[in-house]
Amino acid sequence: MKVPVNITVNGRSYQRDVEPRQLLVHFIRDLGGLTGTKVGCDTSQCGSCTVLLDGVAVKSCSCLAVQADGAAVTTIEGLAEQGTLHPLQEAFWDKHGLQCGFCTPGMILASHELLRHNPDPSDADIRHGLEGNLCRCTGYQNIVRAVRHAADALAEK
């Protein structure tokens, strides 16, 4: 059984017939070119598959593509507007908030979710807000600095 879906990814709409068991993360990654969204743990724990679904952060390894039918997805590739990095992307770069980079797309989108609710987070708020995202490299310190830096940059805008 295949089911027709229409999912907008980074502003472009995709009509596909999908197997109901297809996970949203695979739908996105198999579109062609959009491999920024990672599969880390595949058991809902690491957050590297985080995307925005109608503006809200979700773990796309734990959603079915059919559940996203009619919705708009933003992946890491969709965050930069007209070639200008989003302040969060800029901040992760400036503050060295990554080493291997595998967790970074998820970290940035989870940080996006945090700043949406709390534009002026304390370090503790940031650590709490990123609870669902694991990084095996950085030790988190620079990630926290990057999010704080992005919050300041967004406040100045």
Binding site: S44, G47, T50, V56, A57, V58, K59, S62, C63, A110, E113, L114, G129, E131, G132, N133
Partner: peptide
């Protein structure tokens, strides 16, 4: 519960 992304779904 869980983390923010889990609480959204």
């Amino acid at each position: 519960i869980g983390d923010p992304a889990v609480r959204n779904r």
